[in-house]
Amino acid sequence: MTIARRTSIFAVGVFLLALLLATTLLSLAFGAFRIALPDLLRIIGTGPNGDALDAVAHNVFWQVRLPRVVLAMLVGSSLAVAGVIMQGVFRNPLAEPATVGVSAGAAVGAVIAIIVGLNAFPLGVQLAAFIGGTLSTALVYLLSRSDGKTEVVTMILTGIAINAFAGAVIGFGIFVADDDELRSVTFWSLGTLGLATWNAVGVVAPLALLGILISTKFSRVLDILALGDRPASHLGVRVEPVRLQAIAVVGLLASSAVAATGIIAFVGLLVPHIMRIVLGPRHRHLLWTSALLGATVTLLADLAARTLLSPAELPLGVVTALIGAPFFLLLLRSTRRSQGGWA
C-alpha cells in the first residue's frame, strides 16, 4: 500500500472525544466500590457539597474516584504529548520518555529528594523530578546523536544504561529508607494512580497544561525536522535552540507526570504511533489527538489495574508495561526492517 490514507481529522476528533467521555464514565463508575450510573449522575448533579444521601458513594466519588480520573487524564496526555515531541526531535519512532530513561531519571530525582527530605517543601519532589528528567533527556540526546542523526541502537542502549543506573539508585533508596519513605520510593518505581489526591492534581494540572500548550508551538518545526537538520535550517528553522526548547518541554511533561504517578511506561510510545497510522505524521493534529488518546489509554489501563484483581489493585505501570512491551518489540522489528538491519 503506497498511497497514504488519511482519515478526516473531524471524524477522528469526534471519535476520540466520544471514546474519552465513555471511558471517563466507566472509570468513575467501576472500581473497588461500584457506583451505579443513576447514582453517579445524581452525585455529579448535587456537586461536592451537595446532600450526602449515600455518604459513602458521595465520598468515594468526590475524594477518591474523581481526582484519580482527572490525574490519569493529565498524566496520560502529558506522556503521549512528550512521546510525540521526543519522537519528532529524535527523528525516531522508538523514542519515548520511559524507554530512553527520561522517566527513570525523573524517578531518581524524586527518590533522592525524598531521601534527603526535600518532600517537606512544596513542589520539592516535583522540582527534583523535573531536574532528573530533563538531565537524562539531555544525556540521551547528547550520547545517541552523531552526524545529525539519532542512532536507534545507541539511543536504546543509552536508555538501558540510564534505566539500570536509576534502578540502582532506587534500590539504594529502598535500602536506606524508613517505612514511610519506603512506601513512596516503591511507588516511584512501579507507577500507580493509587495515591491520587486533589493536591496531586493541583500540582500536575498547571505543569501538564502548560507543557501541552507550549507543545503546539512546535508543530510546524517538528514537521520540518523530519527532513533532517541541514534541510530544516535551510528552511529557516533554528535547529539547535528549537531542539533544546523541545527537550525542555519533554522534561516538563514527563517529569510532572512521573512526579505524580511514578514511572508509567509505553503510553508515550503506543499512542503517537497509533495516531500516526490514522492521521499521518503531521504534528499539528498529531499533538492534540495524541493528548486525547493518551488520556483514554491511561484511564483504561488504570481501570484494568483497579478491577482485574479487585479488591486488590495492580500498579498501573505494571499494566502498561504488560501491554506496551510486546508492542515495543513489534515496533522495534519493523523499524529495524525499514533501516535494513543494525549489524
Binding site: R91, D223, A226, P231, G280
Partner: peptide, 14 residues
C-alpha cells in the same frame, strides 16, 4: 533555497 545531495526523511510524510 538549498537542494542537498540526499536526504533521509523520518516518518511517512506524503
Amino acid at each position: 533555497a538549498v537542494l542537498p545531495q540526499q536526504i533521509s526523511i523520518s516518518f511517512p510524510f506524503t
